[in-house]
Design a binder for these strands. Structure first.
Lengths: 201, 201
DNA sequence: TAAGTTACAAACTATGGTTGTTGTAAGTTA
DNA sequence: TAACTTACAACAACCATAGTTTGTAACTTA
C-alpha cells in the first residue's frame, strides 16, 4: 500500500541519508524536515510515521555512526591469534582515528555528536556500554594470556578507559587535530599496561 | 593626581573584584563595563586606562584564578622530605579539586574559563607551561629517588599529563560533578607510575 | 490498515527598528 | 602629565512581529 513503493526500513534509511546530506550542505542545526521530505518525494508529515520527531531523526544520524564504530571495534576484538595487548592498542587507535576522521572531514556531523557527548540518550548509553564490554573482554583475554594481572577486569578496563580519555573525548580530539597524537597515545597506553601487568588489586 | 586616590595596581585589583561580583550576579556574558565602573565610582571610560578592552578585563579574572592554582601547586612541589610520587598524587588531586570546586560553587566564572580552554591566550599558555614545568620537576625528583626510570623526563611528564586529562579538562570535570572520582584518579595515576617505573625510553 | 495526504495550530526563527554598551578622541583637573 | 571626565560614533543586545518550520488531527488510498 505504500505509494513510495518502499518498506519502512528502506525509507528510514533514505531519510537518514537525506538528513546527512542536508547537514553537510546547510549545517546540522539548519536541517529542515521539509527539505528532507522533499528529497524523498513525500510530504514532511510522512516523516512522522517513521520518526517520533525531528530530534529522533537527527539522533538516528549519530546512532548510525556510533553503531559503525561499535562494529569496527568489535571486528578487532574478534580477531584470533593476536596478542591481547596488541589488540587493545589497535582498538584504541581505531577509536581515536574514527573520531579524528569524523571531525576532519565531516565537521557538521561531528558537531551533532559532540553536543550529544554529555547527553543521556539511550543509544549513547548503549554505545558506551558496548565499548566498555569490549574493553573488559580485551582485559580478560590479556589476563588469561598473562599479559595483565589483577582480580577486577571491570575496574582495570575503567582505568584504561579514563586514562585514554585524552584521545577519545570529542572535545579533546577536536582540540588536537593538527598534531600527530598516535605516538603519544601509544606511550600512554603502554605505560598503563605495564603498570597493570604488575599486581593491581 | 588620581581623583580616586588609588594607585593603578589598587584600582586594577578593585576592577577585577567588581567584575567577579558582576559575573556571579548576572552571568559572565552579561557583565557591563558601565556597571563595573559604577562599582568603582568612576566612568566606564576610566577602565580603559587600566585594561586594553573588555576582553582584557574578563581575561584578568581567569588569569587571577590560574595564577592561584599555579601557586598552590607550586607549594606542593616545594615541600621537602616527601616521596616524589606522593607529591605527584597530591599535585594531581589538588588540580582536580580546584577545578571541581570552581565549577561547583562558581559556575559562571568556570564558564569563562571553560571557553578559554582551547583559546591561545598568552596567559593560558603561561599557565600550561608552568604546570608542565612543575610536573617535569616532580618527574625528575622521582627519577632521582629511583621511583621512576627513564631518560626523558619531559616526555614522561607529557604522558602523565595526557593520561590524567580525564580529571583536569574543564569539560570532563564538569561532566562528572556528581561522582567521587578521586579513587579512580588515584588508580589511573598509580598504574601509569608503575608502568613508568619500568624502563620507558 | 499501513503509508500516505492536506490543512492547521503552536513553536521557532529571521528581520528590522530601537535602545543600550563599548570603545575613542578631545577636553579637564590635581 | 597621569588619572580622569564628557561626548559621541560604531557596534551589539533587545524586542516586537511577520514568516517558516514543526508537530498533530482528520481524511485518503492501495
Amino acid at each position: 500500500m505504500p505509494r513510495t513503493g518502499l518498506t519502512a526500513a528502506e525509507i528510514k534509511k533514505k531519510a537518514i541519508d537525506a538528513t546527512v546530506a542536508a547537514m553537510r550542505e546547510e549545517g546540522f542545526d539548519k536541517v529542515r524536515l521539509t527539505d528532507v521530505a522533499k528529497q524523498l518525494g513525500v510530504s514532511h508529515a510522512a516523516l512522522y510515521l517513521h520518526f517520533k520527531d525531528k530530534t529522533a531523526l537527527l539522533d538516528a544520524v549519530s546512532e548510525r555512526w556510533l553503531v559503525e564504530i561499535d562494529e569496527s571495534l568489535d571486528a578487532i576484538c574478534r580477531k584470533q591469534g593476536k596478542e591481547p595487548t596488541e589488540k587493545m592498542l589497535a582498538w584504541m587507535l581505531t577509536l581515536h582515528r574514527a573520531k579524528r576522521a569524523k571531525v576532519l572531514h565531516d565537521p557538521e556531523l561531528y558537531k551533532s555528536f559532540d553536543l550529544l557527548a554529555n547527553a543521556q540518550k539511550p543509544y549513547v548509553q548503549q554505545h558506551m556500554s558496548t565499548l566498555m564490554a569490549q574493553l573488559v573482554g580485551l582485559v580478560r583475554e590479556a589476563i588469561a594470556a598473562r599479559r595483565l594481572r589483577g582480580a577486577d577486569p571491570d575496574k582495570m578496563a575503567e582505568i584504561l578507559w579514563e586514562g585514554m580519555m585524552a584521545f577519545h573525548h570529542p572535545k579533546l580530539v577536536a582540540q588536537h587535530l593538527d598534531e600527530k597524537r598516535e605516538p603519544l597515545l601509544r606511550l600512554v597506553l603502554e605505560s598503563m599496561l605495564k603498570g597493570l601487568a604488575l599486581k593491581t588489586d
